[in-house]
Design a protein around this nucleic acid. Structure first.
Length: 512
RNA sequence: GGCCCGUUGGUCAAUCGGUUAAGACGCCUCCCUUUCACGGAGGAAUGAGGGGUUCGAUUCCCCUACGGGCUACCA
């Protein structure tokens, strides 16, 4: 190992719920760091004070922890490269911005928002619907390039609000190697003079990401594909600041798209299509609006992470169920897909079902217990130990345990009587009357004994047991689902079994 | 509009010039089970279009089309 320890960072802005795309970026960072014995850092990009949402930082940390991919360095666990919130690093950015101005690589711009607005509307045309502040237009604007030195000094001295903009070269080609996409190149005359330092003294993302990645000695930088167009600004900044040889290797991750229409997946799509987009429940402290998360929707973190990893990446073997450890072994950034992937909630649920099937009763127990409790069902640990193995392969989501096991604890709330009715007759009714008696006399009330007695009784009544099993199930469960009937009868006990039969017989009488 | 990125079944996707073009989800049929689920066996379904390069293109190059991203003193 050389002196260059791998250092990666996940750098969300604390503006609200954590989007699954964000979690995937964090996951890839985590996997990469783990694989290379590196450090995974959390950096909070809170340079936009107007969008800051209290509580969001803690929430992000909670989400990552739930996923099992907690950063080892960050505001919660400062290392030697702090502070980890950009708002606390303010002076550094200003200093570098000034240095760039001094070197003639950036300049002060005094244009007011209104002036910018009018420039854009005036220059707007069918050929150019979104005019830029760039090498073509900057000399017509009010900045330290277009104004004479005296005026600039006066403006500065009088405390005129101003920003610092990068001076993009007129005709250069900027290219770099992306770990996922290979060579990518841009013409500098196509990119605008991005604001580096805002009027409030805070940096924009562009300046901050470069300064911080440098200061925090980031070796590999992963971010969403939406950042690709501004990459040339960042590349140039690394060069202008004199850090070119220390620039991290870039990887622009493909976007996660809406399942239907087009465009990147948003929280709105989740609301619209009925699935979560955030990792965990999020309540906006200002509006009070609540948004469901994967966790609360009933996802196991293992499944969530597994699903996310497979969205845009695969190891080439065709296997797709992986735990974090295996993911770490197999992961390679080069195998990340280039194209965006439409999110498929059905497949996401399949991953979860696979993980529920694979999870031990011990692991599932507290989660199931909590779900049941939330639905007014109290279950002992012993009971849960028996029930969980019986129903887990019927559950896609943890919440499904409620519907799949409620009948173990209380009489069914509704009876699907229409399943029984068509083939119901007096003979069957007599059978069940008799069957209640038989149950009373059964010495051992376990599945095998119940089944044997049931079949004997059916034989005596000259009815095929199969024709009676479904009605029996409906009586006990209320519907066509659940584990073997005799198991259920054994678990709920004699009294409950008899009571449910009686209740249902009465119901059937009313229908007749 | 400009720039950038992308494009294999409905969806996720393998293939790194030669394959009957994997596998998974979903869907359909059958078996197991007189419930549901699990499990098992099958099935339908894919290289956007056009040019090259090559003995040979899904694979390499170009063009077109389509999709997406960006085009803020937001990230």
């Amino acid at each position: 190992m050389s002196a260059s320890t791998v250092r990666v960072r996940f750098a969300p802005s604390p503006t609200g719920g954590l989007h699954l795309g964000g979690v995937r970026t964090a996951l890839f960072n985590y996997l990469f760091a783990q694989k290379h014995g590196g450090v995974f850092i959390l950096r909070i990009e809170d340079t936009d004070q107007s969008r800051f949402v209290p509580g969001a930082e803690k929430y992000i940390l909670d989400c990552l922890e739930w996923c099992g991919i907690s950063p080892t360095e960050g505001p919660h666990q400062p290392g030697a490269f702090g502070p980890y919130r950009q708002s606390e690093r303010k002076e550094r950015y200003a200093q570098h911005a000034e240095a760039l101005v001094a070197k003639g690589l950036a300049y002060y711009a005094f244009d007011t928002p209104e002036e910018l607005e009018s420039m854009r509307t005036n220059l707007k045309s069918d050929q150019n619907p979104s005019p830029q502040y760039d090498h073509k237009t900057r000399m017509q604007m009010r900045n330290s390039l277009s104004l004479c030195q005296k005026d600039v000094k006066q403006l500065l001295d009088s405390g005129q609000p101003h920003v610092v903009r990068i001076k993009m070269p007129a005709a250069e080609t900027v290219s770099f190697h992306d770990m996922i996409r290979g060579e990518v190149s841009f013409q500098t005359d196509q990119v605008d003079d991005k604001v580096l330092l805002k009027a409030d003294g805070m940096p924009t993302y562009h300046l901050a990401v470069v300064v911080d990645d440098h200061d925090m000695q980031i070796t590999h930088a992963f971010r969403g594909e939406e950042w690709l167009p501004s990459a040339p600004v960042h590349l140039l900044l690394w060069e202008y600041l004199g850090w070119k040889e220390k620039m991290p290797k870039w990887a622009h991750l493909p976007l996660i798209l809406k399942p239907d229409g087009q465009g990147k997946l948003s929280k709105r799509d989740g609301d619209r299509l009925g699935f979560p987009v955030f990792a965990m429940d999020w309540t906006d402290p200002r509006t009070g609006e609540e948004t469901k998360g994967f966790k609360e929707r009933g996802f196991l973190p293992e499944a969530f992470v597994n699903m996310l990893a497979m969205l845009g990446w695969n190891d080439g073997t065709g296997e797709e169920i992986f735990d974090l450890e295996t993911l770490t072994e197999r992961f390679s950034i080069e195998r990340v897909h280039k194209g965006g992937a439409k999110f498929d909630f059905e497949k996401a649920k399949w991953f979860n079902q696979e993980w529920i099937k694979r999870s031990s009763t011990e692991k599932l127990l507290p989660l199931v217990s909590q779900q049941l409790l939330a639905n007014g069902l109290e279950a002992t640990e012993n009971k849960l130990n028996e029930i969980i193995p019986l129903v887990k392969e019927r559950c896609q989501l943890v919440n499904d345990f409620v519907a799949q096991s409620a009948f173990f604890f209380r009489d069914p709330a509704s009876i699907d009587i229409n399943t029984i009715l068509p083939k119901w007759d007096a003979k069957k009714e007599q059978f069940f009357e008799h069957w209640m008696q038989i149950i009373s006399d059964l010495a051992a009330f376990d599945a095998t004994h119940i089944e044997a007695a049931f079949k004997d009784t059916a034989a005596a009544a000259e009815i095929k047991p199969g024709e009676l099993q479904l009605p029996f199930r409906i009586m006990l469960v209320g519907g066509k689902f659940g584990p073997p009937v005799f198991e259920i009868a054994a678990h709920i006990g004699k009294e409950s079994t008899q009571r449910r039969i009686r209740l249902c017989l009465e119901l059937l009488k009313q229908q007749a």
